[in-house]
Amino acid sequence: MPPIEFKILILENSIIIQKGIYRIFIESGFNCSIFFATNLDDLKHTLKSREIDLVISNVSFFFNDINSLKLLKSHFPDTIWTGFQYSYSENQLLQEFSYVFQINDNQDTFISKVKELTQEDSNSDIAHTVNLTTREVEVLKLLVVGFSNKEIADKLNLSIHTVNTHRKNITQKSGIKSLAALIIFAVSKNYIHIDSLES
């Protein structure tokens, strides 16, 4: 299997720090593409257009605005959210990140932590990509023949929240987001037959 190239997004205003982190990645030989954002709009745009694996954010972007971070995390649950700080930050904010780097971390510590975080994620991906769970297949089958989340929840005796979680997992494992494309995915995996679909 070819090595996986990770997509890393750095949210930072300072060009010096941006370049510093970039250089650390380049020198380490870590297989990744690096993207930069200098504000939250840029961040959102890149998160939408690229499947970012890891965000490294200057925590100060979320000072007094912890809810924006929570919202972003919920919209992009497959992304690992890390921070780095070079001034005092509230614990409540720091706890929202999977890990917080310090400005005085050395190069090796920094890279090995990134590897650890992305490795965990890729392992879990490999474990999940093979097949959907029985429940996820049930949700997918109902979804592609036109049932709404609410109807699926009622049919399978689940909460809508659980149905949503299954949908997110299906998308994460398949890489397919739109319903129209999920239909083709479901046919390709023999979860449904083309004849069972309405024209």
Binding site: K48, S174, G175, S178, A180, A181, I184, F185
Partner: peptide
């Protein structure tokens, strides 16, 4: 853009 990504994924992974 989302559907375009889906199309690429389908052609590369599943069809």
């Amino acid at each position: 853009e989302e559907k375009l990504n889906d199309l690429k994924n389908l052609l590369i992974k599943y069809i």
